[in-house]
């Protein structure tokens, strides 16, 4: 756990990142409860343990940048600034949800905040990311897109076609693998020919790095560098964030493939815990301030759930809306 002086940030920025991570975790815990109560349907994939990856990546984005991810998307939604109530309403399938109750947990998006989803076919959002990057390039825009994916997505054809095209066309994209060690319940070494995922980028001569995905400041710095590389017309950059999910792949995961000790070991490096320690130890924030954030988050999460529960269901007419663009 090394936080060195080079991560120069204002106190307010630190507290913002800290709060986002705590809020994501609290909302995920609430989501799990709501799922168990039968209020959230379908699949639910929690981000607990991986908060530093998404929060650090989004913190590095400039206003003109964009982001897209897979179905473990709640953390990104919060990190880009989606209202927690609007997110929770989507999980509950309500009209006030970001996707009007038609997308659910796996299909959160807020295009106004440059967050393009939430995609649930493994690897399928990679070509979409390449295309979004292509639109920026075509329009001579100064934008870069971060495309997050799980380690499992690096074994599918989409990954290879998209990396190849991004290099050939020098697309402004940062490919970012969240290596949480498992593709569903299958460990990396049982599914991927190489366990060090970044090596796959070497095959396409895409510059790459590994980064500690449990350390939000390391994430922010690495993604910042990657974004600047891609922004300068040098083409894509590839990052592999080493992280871990504490909960199952989804709520229906029997977790027969790993031992509780393994989870405990990773929890020693908990992204929120180590950041808390860093902020306190370096006197960036007082304990009382950090405690205040936790209370604030608690209230915000409660309010989000209340908003979602009290929101109306979509109207019956909504079934027919947005099949086609009208006019």
């Amino acid at each position: 756990m090394l936080f060195v002086e080079k991560y120069k940030m204002e106190k307010a920025d630190h507290l913002k990142l800290y709060k986002q991570m705590v809020l994501i975790r609290r909302l995920e815990e609430k989501s799990a409860e709501l799922y168990q109560q039968g209020k959230i349907g379908g699949f639910l994939h929690l981000y607990i343990g991986q908060e530093a990856v998404g929060v650090g990546a989004v913190a590095a984005m400039k206003p003109q940048d964009h982001i897209i991810t897979a179905y473990r998307d709640h953390g990104i939604a919060i990190a880009v600034g989606m209202d927690a109530g609007v997110m929770m309403a989507e999980l509950l399938g309500k009209q006030t949800g970001c996707s009007k109750g038609k997308g659910g947990s796996m299909h959160l998006a807020d295009v106004s905040k440059h967050f393009w989803g939430g995609h649930a076919i493994v690897g399928a959002h990679l070509p979409l990311a390449a295309g979004l990057a292509l639109s920026f390039q075509y329009n001579h825009a100064d934008s870069v897109i971060i495309c997050m994916m799980g380690d499992g997505a690096t074994n599918i054809g989409y990954f290879h076609e998209s990396l190849n095209l991004s290099k050939v066309w020098k697309l402004p994209v940062v490919w970012m693998v969240e290596n949480n060690q498992y593709g569903m319940g299958t460990a990396i070494e049982r599914a991927s020919a190489v366990s060090e995922i970044r090596q796959k980028a070497e095959g396409y001569q895409i510059p790459n790095a590994r980064v500690d995905g449990m350390n939000v400041l390391a994430m922010k710095e690495a993604v910042g560098k990657a974004l600047e590389h891609a922004r300068c017309g040098e083409g894509p950059y590839f990052l592999e964030a080493i992280t871990y999910r504490y909960r199952g792949h989804s709520m229906g995961d029997p977790e027969r493939y790993r031992k509780p000790d393994e989870i405990k070991k990773w929890q020693e490096d908990d992204p929120i815990g180590q950041y808390n320690e860093h902020l306190a130890k370096n006197k960036i924030a007082a304990d009382s301030e950090l405690d205040a954030i936790e209370s604030e988050v608690e209230a915000e999460a409660d309010a989000a759930v209340k908003f979602a529960e009290e929101s109306p269901n979509p109207s019956p007419e909504a079934l027919w809306e947005h099949v086609y663009v009208s006019g």
Binding site: A130, L134, Y158, S162
Partner: peptide, 16 residues
């Protein structure tokens, strides 16, 4: 073809 169709779709999402 996956990335031809996919990148075209993505570019369309992006306004092209």
């Amino acid at each position: 073809e996956m990335v031809i169709a996919g990148a075209a779709i993505g570019a369309a999402m992006g306004g092209a």
